[in-house]
């Protein structure tokens, strides 16, 4: 019982990071209809910026939580302006290929700049784990587990609230719903796309800050996070922010439970099997935004 509980908590922790990354992916897709395959690269850069601030410059950790999302968000908006704006009239495949190679460029630039297998970032909270008696067993939680889980979920929920209730979110939803109509109502395409990329990339950067202590900083981080975020987003319905959170948590739990009770090396395969099952049974995802109409 205690073992199962610890395993699920471990799954929720990693799932919260996937959820945060998935929300960023969904925000950009909802507002701009672009599937951003460079998202993993932005997560990796977020983790790298955390390393630079916390380890190299020895700044307080809280500064990384504030500055990294702003930096990565600004970089995302800049990439949209420089790379994706000229592709706005191009067909879907061109844009997808553009983001794939943008992601590759970010990873390779990092590889060239940092000649190191892995950069380690310490956890924000260290110290002895918390022991909780559950019947005859003891359940162990680390402070880092609690912080990452609650922190990532809180930020993810705030992101959902901003998109749903603020005027910024309204502009993005309007642009996603009807670009021409939104422009006629006074919304600027450049502004809304820039904001969407800023927000989505900031969430990716923050996912990098949360992921850095448990995964380290390496080019592999880009691929592993974007793959999991993509699966989480698809499970959630791809256009649903709440669905991305549920998809991330579900994916994290399935990965960890399969690692615990089947095999660590099969956890990714089982995640893709979950994705396959969801697409087979409910291709619109678990929480589709668009309602079905029976005519």
């Amino acid at each position: 019982m205690a073992e199962l509980l610890m395993t699920i908590v471990g799954g929720i922790k990693i799932g919260a990071i996937y959820a945060l990354a998935a929300i960023g992916l969904v925000v950009i897709h909802k507002a701009t209809k672009t599937v951003n395959f460079a998202h993993g690269g932005l997560v990796m850069l977020g983790a790298f910026a955390t390393y630079e601030m916390v380890v190299v410059f020895e700044w307080p950790y809280w500064m990384a939580y504030i500055a990294v999302p702003v930096l990565i968000g600004a970089l995302g908006a800049l990439l949209e302006f420089v790379v994706l704006k000229p592709l706005r009239r191009a067909d879907l495949f061109t844009v997808i290929i553009g983001t794939i190679f943008l992601g590759t460029a970010l990873s390779e630039a990092y590889r060239l700049a940092e000649n190191s297998e892995l950069l380690a970032v310490p956890a924000l909270f260290t110290g002895p784990p918390l022991l909780i008696d559950v019947g005859s067993d003891v359940v162990i939680f680390t402070r880092e587990q609690i912080w990452v889980t609650l922190g990532a979920l809180a930020v993810g929920t705030a992101g959902v609230a901003i998109f749903r209730y603020s005027s910024l979110g309204r502009s993005m939803r309007a642009m996603a719903s009807n670009s021409r109509g939104a422009q006629l109502c006074g919304y600027s395409v450049e502004g809304v796309y820039g904001i969407a990329w800023f927000l989505g990339s900031a969430l990716a950067g923050l996912a990098g800050v949360f992921a850095a202590p448990s995964k380290g900083v390496s080019p592999d981080l880009a691929v592993s996070i974007v793959a999991s975020a993509f699966v989480a987003a698809v499970i959630g319905g791809f256009d649903s922010l709440g669905g991305a959170i549920v998809g991330g948590l579900l994916l994290g739990c399935v990965e960890t439970l399969s690692a615990a009770y089947v095999s660590s090396s099969l956890s990714m395969a089982i995640s893709y099997f979950l994705l396959f099952c969801v697409l087979l049974v409910r291709p619109e995802g678990l929480f589709p935004e668009a309602k079905r109409r029976h005519v």
Partner: peptide
Amino acid sequence: EFDQGARDFTSQLLAFTR
């Protein structure tokens, strides 16, 4: 056992705990 470059050791560590 684990594969090269592994970052998750859930199954192995749980086996040691058991």
